[in-house]
Design a protein around this nucleic acid. Sequence first.
DNA 1: CGGCAATCTTTTGCATACAAACAAACTCCG
DNA 2: CGGAGTTTGTTTGTATGCAAAAGATTGCCG
Lengths: 139, 139
Amino acid sequence: MEKPPSYVLDEQIGYVLRRVTQRHLSLFSAAIPEVTTTQFAVLARLAELGPQSQNHLGRATALDAATVKGVVDRLARFGLVATSPDTGDRRRLTVSLTEAGQTLFRNRLAEGLAISDRTLAPLDAAEREMLIRLLLRLV
Amino acid sequence: MEKPPSYVLDEQIGYVLRRVTQRHLSLFSAAIPEVTTTQFAVLARLAELGPQSQNHLGRATALDAATVKGVVDRLARFGLVATSPDTGDRRRLTVSLTEAGQTLFRNRLAEGLAISDRTLAPLDAAEREMLIRLLLRLV
DNA sequence: CGGCAATCTTTTGCATACAAACAAACTCCG
DNA sequence: CGGAGTTTGTTTGTATGCAAAAGATTGCCG
């Protein structure tokens, strides 16, 4: 007789990832209510890489073309990024940080790191590093 | 002179969680295209706990009331769950698995476990257990 | 018993996310 | 040069997710 395998939802990687993500998003929005995690990631990449085409920016932040368009539109509405046509390639839309966007990112950078810290608070330093290293191997 | 702290997006826990989740969702939808991860989690909980009020089902799967309503509506449209008014408490809506829902979950259970396995494929057994244990402490 | 707080469900609004389809622009190769 | 194939951006449709508000019902306490 075959014993049917048991499916323990609480130990499935996908479910655990979702719950940890929920807690992280909650900590983030409490600490930085002005933007979402995704918007903050886009600001961080723009600060790091400088002006980028919208598609390239999406790839650099793991957002598909449809999603990054929405994110950029909202950031532009908030005045945190600006878009301009690329002179060389007329398909391209160049996205860049505005002054307000640079200021917001600079002012919130430390808080962003603190949020990562709070998310990882139950773990000690060695465990945190281990966790990040294991997760990075799953990407 | 204070050196400004650096924000390495690729090592922030929130960003890494999002990317790992992306990979997992992609593996899931390739292997079980009939339902989403969230829908599968709801089916699993119903199989485990039996008929539940919609709110209780939501809490048991980490979905807020608005979200679980949408998920249940779609599962009902697919004929995988059925809803009926609770006789004792007229506020409540009882959600239960249909025959089709039970069958689908039974038939896909092993595949669900295989997807978790594939998501964790880059890690050995000890690393997998370590990862899950660390993540569970962050919930 | 009567009122009030808590619970359950629904609705609305906003923000990711992805798939698929499309048009415009570009590249590259014959 | 010219056309095939690729890249870029947009739109549409579907599915999570959360916050907030509203309406119905229930439970409890004075």
